[in-house]
C-alpha cells in the first residue's frame, strides 16, 4: 500500500506538468533533495542541509515556527474580516458587532484573530528570551537579532493599530493614551502624533490611518523582514544548536 503510493507519487513527479513546475525532478539522491529545496521560492530561504540536533525540541522549543504559525493564522483570519469591516466612524463599531452576532462564523474568525494576536506577542517574547538565554544572538548571528528586534516592534505596532479598529470606548481611550505617549518624543513628538492620527484627536482620519497601517503597511513590512530573518538563519550557518557543547 505504502509502496504503491510512493510509486504513484514518483510517477507523478516524472510527469511533464510536474517537471515544468518543479524542476528538481524525482529521485532520493542528495542532489535531487538539495535541488528541491534550493529551487523552490519558499524553501530556498531555508538551508539545504540541517543538522539533526538543531531540529530537536529542546534547542528552540519551536518558538520561532510557532510565531510564524500565529502570523499565518492572523493573515488568514484578517483578510475575511476585512470583507465585513468598514473603517469609518459611523460603521466601524456596528460592523464589529455584526461580525460577532450576525455574520456566520464571524465570531469564530474575530476571536481567532484576537487570540492569535495575543499569542503572537507572547510567542515573540518567548522566542526572544529563548534566543537570548541560549546565547544564540552572538556573532555571526548578531544582525539577525537586530532584524528580530525590528520584527518585535512591527508585532507590537500591529497589535496597537489593531486595538483601535473595534472603535469602542476601550479602543478610543487606549489610542488616546498611546498617542499622547508618542508626544513625549523630544522635539518632534507632537508632529509625529499629528501625522499618525491625521489630526489632533482620535477621529475619522486616525481610524482610517490605523486601518491602512494594520492591514497593508505593517503586514508588508512584517513579511519582508520575516523573509530576511529566515534567509539570514541559513546565511549565518543554520539554527544555533549549542556549538560549544557544554551542557546542551
Amino acid at each position: 500500500m505504502a509502496n504503491s503510493l510512493e510509486a504513484r507519487l514518483t510517477s507523478l513527479r516524472d510527469t511533464r506538468v510536474w517537471r515544468s513546475i518543479f524542476r528538481s525532478g524525482s529521485g532520493a539522491t542528495n542532489l535531487r533533495r538539495a535541488l528541491a529545496v534550493q529551487q523552490n521560492v519558499f524553501l530556498h530561504l531555508a538551508s539545504v542541509k540541517v543538522r539533526k540536533r538543531s531540529l530537536a525540541f529542546r534547542v528552540t522549543w519551536f518558538l520561532g515556527t510557532l510565531t510564524l504559525g500565529a502570523f499565518l493564522i492572523l493573515v488568514l483570519t484578517g483578510i475575511p474580516l476585512m470583507l465585513y469591516y468598514h473603517p469609518s466612524v459611523p460603521q466601524a463599531y456596528a460592523d464589529m458587532n455584526d461580525l460577532r452576532f450576525v455574520v456566520s462564523a464571524g465570531v469564530f474568525l474575530r476571536n481567532l484573530h484576537r487570540w492569535s494576536a495575543h499569542a503572537m506577542v507572547l510567542l515573540v517574547f518567548a522566542h526572544m528570551f529563548k534566543v537570548f538565554y541560549r546565547g544564540a544572538y552572538r556573532p555571526p548571528r548578531e544582525f539577525n537579532w537586530v532584524i528580530g528586534v525590528v520584527l518585535l516592534l512591527i508585532t507590537l505596532f500591529l497589535s496597537y493599530t489593531g486595538y483601535l479598529l473595534p472603535w469602542d470606548q476601550l479602543a478610543f481611550w487606549a489610542i488616546t493614551v498611546g498617542s499622547n505617549l508618542i508626544s513625549a518624543v523630544p522635539v518632534f513628538g507632537a508632529r509625529i502624533r499629528f501625522l499618525l492620527l491625521g489630526g489632533h484627536t482620535v477621529n475619522a482620519n486616525a481610524l482610517l490611518r490605523f486601518y491602512v497601517l494594520h492591514c497593508v503597511i505593517l503586514p508588508l513590512a512584517a513579511v519582508t523582514f520575516v523573509a530576511i530573518h529566515f534567509w539570514r538563519i541559513r546565511k549565518d550557518g543554520g539554527i544555533y544548536s549549542g556549538e560549544s557543547k557544554r551542557h546542551e
Partner: peptide
C-alpha cells in the same frame, strides 16, 4: 510625503 500626510483641512 510629509506635506501629503499632514492634513490641511481638519473636520474636527
Amino acid at each position: 510625503g510629509y506635506e501629503f500626510l499632514a492634513p490641511n483641512v481638519l473636520y474636527e
